[in-house]
Write a protein that binds this DNA or RNA. Structure first.
Lengths: 248, 248
DNA sequence: TGCGGCAAGGGCACTCAGTTCCCTCCTCCC
DNA sequence: GGGAGGAGGGAACTGAGTGCCCTTGCCGCA
């Protein structure tokens, strides 16, 4: 496999259109080459800088830790998500908005499928990288929860609802993302995430403006006694719609 | 503050009823004394073992890493949770069951409020400990999700639903737990967690045996065209039931 | 042309977490 | 009594991460 194909797009460096990737990219490429060849823990930072032909001190200038070189683009993606949420229109449906924000993460993964799949295999095997990834996911989740808390603060249990929705959206997103990664990037990532997030949105969703006039078709009628628990009603609806949805 | 009060109950050591706490306890006590006095990062493992009067090598016999000494009882709690889920009756409501499993974690925290509050203040300040805690929480979540996956495997989107429910239950539990820790252990932890988990259960709950024959009342009928997004239907249901449910 | 920053990078030494190897001591059992 | 085995201790080592200072190359400026 080509090492350059494993390296993600350029970071925030100041690189002219056709310029060769700066040291940061070289370090990522060298690191992944060695990680895939000998394993993460068997590769020392000295090995990486030797292959990249730079000084050891420079590595830690670009990456605060050895783990960071495995996730070189999450910092940018997190900033994108924060900006996306900050730019939200005031009348946006909050749940839909955080689902869209989660899709930014998927987009980052999908931009470099090979790199993402390689990284996935790496993180699956190395406990330290899994722990690091958890802290990254946690920051995404806190970004979503922060936005939701602001939007739901006037509601009873607003903070609780915000935390729960953020966790559910992240879990749904990651479920689909991991499925896509396990398929070696061959499945349709967008559709899988749409389906998973649709699930979360169906549970928590709060419609912005109902897009009424859909195409005509059969009618499904649900009748329930007042007093019936909500979950039970929702379950009935899901059963009625079951043959519309793909079976997983 | 008394150091001994900060140490949690005995681990799995073989200690007679009245025996003095073994080395493991002494290490935890010494570590927390130093952590609270000088900070986590400012305290080296050598400092801890010097205060405890044991050899450095013994520290790593009892705790695989410096971080583990901060969470000395999670391993046991995780084992308890796994056993609890494995012992589940086949007809138990899965969502209720994982909520009860989550309460085991709360119980562990509530058994040593002082210790838990001290640890909470520590983890809030130290990024490394937060990351470690995330990996612990992740293991709890995977235990819940594993149980739910098995219980929901015959349902459409079973794995997705399992992951989302587990994440939501953990988030609800942690929301209440953190509120209790922020109150310095003065609030009613059990009530807060019951409330939070009740929320999750209301959203995802799945009846063991459908309590059909409720008291008769008005009927709500919802009609939707096939193809209407599920969230929209759910929203209609929620609107129709709004005056029945408590306004959260 | 020379000079004084200034930023990027490199080298070196240091701390500290975690591991490996081997030692001692105590206890129990034959 | 003597050997086995486990608990604990200690020295030395690896490797991540940091602090300090040096070189180099580039810029503006006198």
């Amino acid at each position: 496999m080509s090492t350059s194909s494993a390296a993600p797009r350029r970071g925030d460096g100041t690189d002219a259109p056709g310029a060769r990737p700066p040291m940061r990219e070289a370090l990522v490429a060298a690191a992944f080459q060695l990680f895939l060849e000998h394993g993460y823990e068997q590769t020392t930072v000295d090995d990486i800088v030797a292959l990249a032909g730079v000084g050891r001190r420079s590595f830690f200038r670009y990456f605060p830790s050895k783990e960071d070189v495995v996730f070189p683009d999450h910092e940018r993606c997190l900033a994108d998500m924060t900006a996306f949420l900050a730019d939200s229109p005031a009348d946006a449906d909050p749940v839909r908005r955080v689902c869209d924000a989660a899709r930014l993460v998927l987009r980052m993964y999908a931009e470099n499928p090979d790199f993402s799949v390689q990284r996935y295999r790496l993180t699956k095997r190395v406990a330290g990288l899994r722990a690091y990834e958890l802290s990254v996911v946690w920051r995404y989740e806190r970004a979503l929860a922060g936005y939701l808390r602001a939007r739901l603060e006037d509601r009873p249990d607003g903070r609780l609802r915000a935390d729960v929705i953020a966790a559910a959206v992240v879990a749904a997103h990651n479920n689909a993302l991991r499925g896509w990664l396990r398929s070696d990037g061959r499945d349709d990532a967008g559709a899988a995430v749409d389906h998973a997030l649709g699930h979360a949105q169906a549970v928590f969703g709060d419609a912005p403006a109902a897009p009424r006039g859909g195409p005509p078709g059969d009618l499904v009628v649900v009748a329930a006694r007042r007093g019936t628990p909500l979950w039970q009603v929702v379950r009935e609806i899901e059963t009625a719609f079951a043959d519309d949805a793909p079976p997983n």
